[in-house]
């Protein structure tokens, strides 16, 4: 699988679920990409670097989301 393909799968998958949730575990992304976690991580890292995904962290747990989605950006005065 190439990066573009992985990116499309993730963006499409997350966009579909936007109504019910805006933050996703890494495993959710790996499942969308259909690769083992270590292989999926390379694509996910690149998507974060390019600003296609953003991190969210509670301090103990990390999640991923599409930038600007969910309540977080507004709640944190970051938008």
């Amino acid at each position: 699988m190439d990066y573009e393909e992985a990116k499309n799968l993730v963006v499409e998958g997350l966009t579909k679920k936007q109504k019910s949730k805006s933050k996703f575990y890494f495993n959710d992304l790996a499942k969308l990409i259909g690769e083992k976690p270590r292989a999926a991580k390379k694509y996910v890292n690149q998507m974060v670097t390019e600003g296609i995904l953003e991190y969210w962290s509670s301090g103990s747990t990390s999640m991923y989301g599409l930038p600007g989605t969910g309540k977080q950006a507004a709640a944190e005065h970051e938008d």
């Binding site: 969210w56 962290s57 970051e78």
Partner: peptide
């Protein structure tokens, strides 16, 4: 306090814990 958030430094997914 509101705990957790999207803040961080570029390229890092850890090391910063948002608090508002």
């Amino acid at each position: 306090w509101k705990h957790g958030g999207i803040v961080g430094v570029f390229g890092y997914g850890g090391g910063v814990i948002g608090r508002y």
